[in-house]
Design a protein around this nucleic acid. Structure first.
Lengths: 213, 213
DNA sequence: AACAGACTTAATGTATACACTGGGGCCAAA
DNA sequence: TTTGGCCCCAGTGTATACATTAAGTCTGTT
């Protein structure tokens, strides 16, 4: 694997997992020593991260990890509602029915995944991720899909702010199931509405359980 | 100005203005000689361009200028309708009325700008650009604004494909005026509808006058 | 003649040396 | 003591040399 790719993945992971707190200055030499590569790949990685909005060039004095304020979360969800609502509607029109029927059935069984002792909820998040991928594929619009992928980076970061208790995750699974069901039924307005409902509930939960850093 | 910035601006301009045709291979050494800087800034510029989607890394053999197919144009306008529709609606709710009343009045006088002999339509495009900026500012959502800015790069490129005759530009000015009027009136649904109408007309015009390369 | 494999080479990927710039600290004067 | 200006330097910005990889070609075998 290329060194710049490793540096990018490592830094991105560190930021998303909040191991690098907002405001942290990422000096090129320092990071190159920490990651065991030269400045060039680190520089390229920092450029990509700044383009994504995870870091911010701080005029001559390195790049800093961007903060996520409460207003940012509101803005993020406003854009998310726009994009994912449209995506769900398009998937309902263009998607292949059996795929979403299958996902719907699996999402109805999601509570079983949350009862066991896996603390990282790996299976659950993998299933939700498969729904995202199925929608991405169904919309057959690479620009829209790319915009949503760019958003999801920030959303994973926000998710780490909230306490994902089993109760919320079960409710979220039911909401996801409703989205999959609407898409499988080929009903774009219902799919969009279900997405809107889900995102509003998610946002409320994040804001309610959010612990300021 | 930094060399990487100059290289980026120059390459971007060359691509948008179709001086660099789709499929053109941009070798780092070649471009560094042409632009009079070393490979490092050129490399950074190419990275930024690839992140924006104007170029595409072609696995080991340089980066190539991306093509714009008819499907791409459809996808582009689908996303554009989603984003700009939402933006217009938000601007109608959050924007400052006098700003858009002023823009509305100026847009109604746009035909005067198109009657003179300026072939590049500089004043006209500047006015339309001011409307875009006013909407960007009014929505007060940096993520949405950034997504729209990223889109506009591709749209300028598409615009160069179409024949911008005076008739179409006058009609477009009237459509823009309708959008500004709806925002000034504080009517989000009308603003969104006016945007939808404008974008559909634009797309029809592009597809009708598009000359394949 | 067609295909498989290694070689060639031209490009990218990486490391590092040098240039430049902006900020912080120190010193001096009021 | 405070403030203004200068100096120092840490860090980014650029150039270039070296390593690596992948596409294209050539040759040998089937």
């Amino acid at each position: 694997m290329r060194a710049s790719e490793r540096a990018y993945a490592a830094l991105r992971e560190d930021i998303i997992e909040w191991r690098l707190a907002p405001g942290t200055v990422l000096a090129e030499v320092e990071q190159s020593e920490r990651l065991g590569v030269s400045r060039t790949p680190v520089r390229e990685a920092l450029g990509r991260l700044s383009a994504e909005g995870l870091t911010r060039a701080a005029g001559g004095r390195g790049v800093v990890v961007t903060d996520i304020s409460l207003e940012d979360i509101d803005e993020l969800f406003e854009l998310r509602e726009t994009l994912e609502g449209k995506a769900a509607a398009l998937a309902a029109v263009r998607g292949e029915r059996p795929v979403f029927e299958q996902l719907h059935a699996e999402l109805l069984r999601a509570p079983e995944m949350l009862s066991d002792s896996d603390p990282s909820r790996h299976d659950y998040y993998a299933l939700v991720g498969r729904l995202d991928e199925a929608i991405d594929a169904a919309i057959s619009n690479s620009y829209l899909a790319q915009a949503m992928r760019a958003l999801r980076v920030h959303l994973v970061r926000v998710r780490r702010l909230a306490a994902d208790d089993a109760g919320r995750l079960q409710a979220a699974a039911a909401e996801h199931a409703a989205i999959a069901e609407a898409i499988a039924a080929g009903n774009p307005r219902l799919a969009e509405a279900a997405t809107t409902v889900h995102l509003h509930r998610s946002l409320s939960h994040v804001k309610a359980t959010h612990t300021p850093h």
